[in-house]
Design a protein around this nucleic acid. Structure first.
Lengths: 350, 350
DNA sequence: GTGAAAGCGCTAACAT
DNA sequence: ATGTTAGCGCTTTCAC
């Protein structure tokens, strides 16, 4: 099969120059005489020559690859991040190799080993858990690395994250402004630091207003299980007047549960979701949600990573971006603002 | 920076054997004495040795990479396909390099050039348009290739697609069964063969029932433009009783337009969407939709591709999978079945 | 400014 | 069964 592709040597012969000159022309790193440049270009075009990145990389030791490890490829938050990262990275001639850690530490390690065996110029990793199973391997390999989204508090390297505490506080304040004193927080899993931060943001805000911190319901990651737990909770007597869902899956699961239970949104219960997707806009009612700056996160990650690749050895930095609340129709005002201390709290948290 | 990672030579020295033996042990392709195997394994573990795939690949000429080119990474249909492909591929030790063609022929070509420069073992491509801009490059490179989803009728190679005509006919029959004689078909763009096929499936079915083929509204790809065109059409007097949206974006856009126009689904207009996503289940009303077998498509693609990689040179095959109609709440019965000839038609199309 | 030669880390022949 | 040698296609000295 596969007739061999032309090599640089073939191009050199056709152009009547040495391989080194071809390399210099194509790589554009040494000055070459104009006439020769033309000849080489023409020869390369004639042969449909394409450089062999593998050989190039082996010799130069420099690669134009960024490895990306995400917890899952089924979650649009992660895939949108990849899309944004791909745009940023390819604009500088890098390719990305991706792998999914499958929400599993062992898989994360295995996949990272595979990614590292490409000797990438850098890696972007969204750990599958706070344990960040692949961390040691990455440190050992000395490859520049930026951790995104799931950043453990004690993480020592470069990181990009959102202000999860403040993001959730945005939702809490919104509820307080319109009289919701008893809300329910639906979290996927409290094993993740960013989810815990979101809980804290809500609790702080409520406490700041002189109220009890809201109840937190941990529902797990599997869609069916989530629905079941939410339904069980909402079947109880003391129903909340509002719900904050802390992830996009949780948001969807909550909506599904409301539907099965025949609970009207926002008339019976108000809802604030997490992550801002198109379907939330077209849903009936449209869903008020906390949106994460996905493109901004990707750009920040690449900015840091490419600086490191270029040799920046300044101290590690954590870049924290802000989320915003997209107010839509899924939240109903049920009373006057409950903000005795809320404003103070807001000032504190800034 | 980056202290150099250990090489095979380092391992060989530490284990007191030759590099070739290390290669044989780690690659597991020649019998090696048990004691030596142990020594090598230990040495490799001690040094945290990781094989350099770049060097390995350069020498052996064999790569364990599959390149995947999709039109967009923002569309969940494509990312789900990638997720499924990643699972299939990594179970056989391959890595995936992805790129987005950005719905643009020129970008598709540029990205494919980059992907091919890795000399991948195979490529999976979802063309950005029917022109399949990257086709020639792939053929020239002689790399095994499977085309997925957007398969032009005249395509000569291996391909995996769904029976688009029958998929759309499923929706048409559903509408006919419950008395909808006047429906509107909302297509993203008729430039894509699979979309045209879907239109044909609906037209055939209606004609088979002795009715006029439904009107087709082409709305483009940009979300805002889509909404505007739909709204303009629905503001007219002759409203359809039902709408079939032929892509997931079109489905979302139609829902958004209905909402802005205050049109109730399914009471005023019934809706059948395309692609089956979780949000369609939780939407109110839940959306009846045609679901594509994404995982099945990915598995079929890998099955074909891995056969080709292993040297299969049987004639090219097109694998066609069936879609299914998920009946939910967005469709209302408005009369008796209109199926005089519909059943005959169904038999014909099989 | 250009070319000759060495060699990146590995694996495939071949020799032992 | 193991070691030795050569060389994959490129880039990088280092001569010229």
């Amino acid at each position: 099969m596969a007739r061999k592709p032309p090599t640089m040597r073939d191009v050199a012969v056709r152009a009547g120059v040495s391989p080194a000159t071809v390399s210099n022309v194509l790589g554009g790193r040494k000055r070459v005489d104009g006439a020769l440049v033309e000849r080489v270009r023409k020869a390369a075009a004639d042969l449909d020559y394409q450089i062999d990145r593998v050989a190039s990389q082996l010799r130069s030791g420099k690669t134009r690859v960024v490895s990306v490890l995400v917890p899952s490829l089924e979650n649009p938050f992660f895939t949108s991040l990849i899309a944004a990262l791909e745009r940023a990275v390819r604009s500088e001639g890098y390719d990305i190799i991706i792998a999914s850690g499958n929400d599993d530490d062992a898989v994360e390690r295995a996949r990272m080993a595979a990614l590292l065996s490409w000797r990438p110029a850098g890696v972007v990793v969204l750990p599958s858990s706070d344990r960040f199973a692949a961390r040691q391997m990455i440190e050992d390999s000395q490859v520049p690395c930026v951790v995104v989204d799931r950043v453990a508090a004690e993480h020592g390297g470069d990181a990009v994250t959102v202000d999860n505490r403040e993001a959730a506080a945005l939702a809490a304040r919104h509820f307080l402004e319109i009289g919701h004193s008893r809300i329910l927080v639906v979290a996927s899993t409290l094993d993740l630091a960013n989810i815990r931060e979101r809980c804290v943001g809500i609790a702080e805000t409520y406490r700041g207003a002189g109220l009890e911190p809201p109840e937190v319901l941990e529902v797990g990651l599997s869609f069916d299980e989530v629905g079941e737990r939410i339904e069980r909770r909402l079947a109880e007597d003391e129903r909340p007047t509002g719900v904050v869902a802390l992830t996009n899956f949780a948001t969807m699961a909550v909506i599904a549960a409301f539907k099965r239970l025949g609970i009207a949104v926002p008339d019976e219960i108000s809802l604030i979701g997490f992550d801002d997707y198109a379907w939330m806009r077209v849903s009936t009612p449209s869903i008020t949600a906390i949106g994460q700056p996905i493109a901004g996160m990707a750009e920040a990650a690449w900015e840091r990573l490419s600086a490191r690749i270029d040799g920046d050895d300044s101290p590690p930095r954590t870049i924290t971006l802000d989320c915003r609340l997209e107010v839509r129709q899924s939240v109903l005002s049920i009373g006057p603002p409950l903000r005795k201390l809320a404003d103070l709290q807001r000032t504190n948290s800034l």
